[in-house]
Amino acid sequence: MPGWTSHEGRMVALPIENIDTDQLIPARFMSTPRSQGYGRFLLHDMARDADGSLRPDFALAAVPDASILIARRNFGCGSSREAAVYALVDSGFRAVIAPSFGDIFASNAVNNGLLPAKVSEAEAEALMKEVDHSACIDLERLEIVTGDLRIKFDLDPVWRTKLMNGWDDIDLTRDRADQIAEFRDRRKAGAAWAWV
């Protein structure tokens, strides 16, 4: 996964609290292999009528090429399904801006190059009023700039490094194989009961 330091794109607003992972992608689509693309499942039951056609009043329909989503508090709460992130990424999103995120969702997002940017409630509301414009997100300065607005966002430093470098954890961890093996032996000696 390639890293990134800045991104410019169109914004779109989803002014709803507690957008949970079941809404981001209903469970019935989760058996699909990733190679088939998850974009069409994004917010499926909110976006589409029973016959599958896109509702014209669906918030995201207004800006089909948007790559920055602005939402209200507790975005991505609920299940650990990484498919919720796949649906966003495969729809072209690079960042979600909200006052807070579900913990597992946020770490899943970072693992797929999607930025979960935390701003205050007032800032999220202010950004939602600017959705006709594009915005520039700078990971180095932790800043979102659009029109006259310049907003700082919160991001765990570990996650920032990961997003910027496009790090793959498995490779990083495998570099520590000796330390892991040593720990394993120590734990097996000290707590044999913990083995199956």
Partner: peptide
């Protein structure tokens, strides 16, 4: 604690988690 699919792959491959 629950983890996402990328982390599942990590645990499968390393038996560890960051």
């Amino acid at each position: 604690f629950g983890i996402g699919a990328t982390e599942v792959a990590h645990v499968l491959a390393t038996q560890t988690i960051w």
